[in-house]
């Protein structure tokens, strides 16, 4: 067998698989987003109407705005919460370090559905939080925490926190501790050292964590469905309705394409920032 054929044989079947079941479906969505739908069936009339409807009809505009607002809020919260934890884990010499690291990533073992369900248990009308607040006599009537965008932000921040921790910790592990020692030996205080050395050197991790959490938050379906529902539509839940309930494949495809472009765009920017930083550090 000629040696040139070896790589071809190795990659042929997996590539064909991805082409048929991944590339073609995505190409189909892109095509359908430019086709007109009539009576719940695609026609072959090419149109930009689907995108116009998406950006004009209040229902969809509101869902898009809500999705991106939630995404940005989740990204920011993930950074704010993950940074101190990642900083602690990267600098501690505790003998529990390995256990604490494993614990910080352990939520990834549970499905988002299960973790969000935990928040539902805590936040619902007869839930743990209302129980506790009533027992402490802070409120007399159960408070309506659900459904709300705030609860969705809380649930998504909780689900996506481990990704933020991984991203920021990778950046912090790359910061040379000698630079911090140098700053301190030159008379900088600990706060000053942190603000002028550690924080700027880990900025790629911050940007990466923000963008990754943002991208994953706007694609989430289960959390907005469980903690929000019909009262708080987002892009993912709208796509589900359009595709499976209303059966408007054109509009559903247009919304899908918008989601793909946004999520992939955010992720690619995050990767680019990360690799540029690594190139500078090397």
């Amino acid at each position: 067998m000629p040696r040139k054929l070896v790589p071809l044989l190795l990659v042929l079947v997996p590539t064909a698989f991805l082409f048929v079941f991944f590339a073609i479906p995505n190409a189909f969505l892109l095509t359908a987003s430019f086709l007109k739908s009539e009576a719940q069936a695609l026609t072959d009339e090419v149109t930009l109407e689907n995108y116009q409807v998406l950006f004009r009809r209040t229902l969809y505009v509101n869902a898009i705005i809500r999705t991106f607002t939630i995404g940005a809020a989740v990204g920011a919260l993930v950074v704010v919460i993950a940074y101190p934890l990642a900083f602690f884990l990267s600098r501690t010499t505790s003998r529990w370090k390995e256990v604490l690291m494993a614990l910080s990533l352990s939520p990834l073992l549970a499905s988002v559905v299960v973790r969000t369900y935990g928040w539902w248990v805590v936040l619902n009308r007869e839930g743990a939080l209302n129980d506790a607040l009533r027992a402490l006599r802070i409120i007399d009537q159960p408070y309506q925490f659900l459904p709300s965008s705030g609860a969705i932000v809380l649930g998504l921040t909780h689900s996506l926190l481990p990704y933020g921790i991984i991203t920021i910790m990778t950046a912090l592990n790359g910061v040379n501790p000698r630079l911090e020692q140098a700053a301190m030996s030159l008379g900088a205080s600990r706060t000053r050292t942190f603000l002028s050395v550690t924080l700027p050197l880990s900025s790629a991790g911050i940007a990466g964590a923000f963008l990754l959490a943002f991208a994953l938050a706007i694609s989430a379906y289960a959390t907005p469905q469980i903690l929000g529902g019909p009262a708080t539509p987002v892009m993912a839940t709208q796509i589900y309705n359009l595709m499976l309930t209303i059966l408007d494949w054109s509009l559903g495809s247009a919304m899908s394409v918008l989601l793909i472009v946004s999520a992939a765009g955010l992720m690619l920017i995050g990767t680019a920032i990360g690799s540029r930083r690594r190139a500078e550090a090397a």
Partner: peptide, 8 residues
């Protein structure tokens, strides 16, 4: 997004 992979 995996959601879109599923829909496609």
């Amino acid at each position: 997004p995996a959601l879109v992979t599923g829909i496609g």
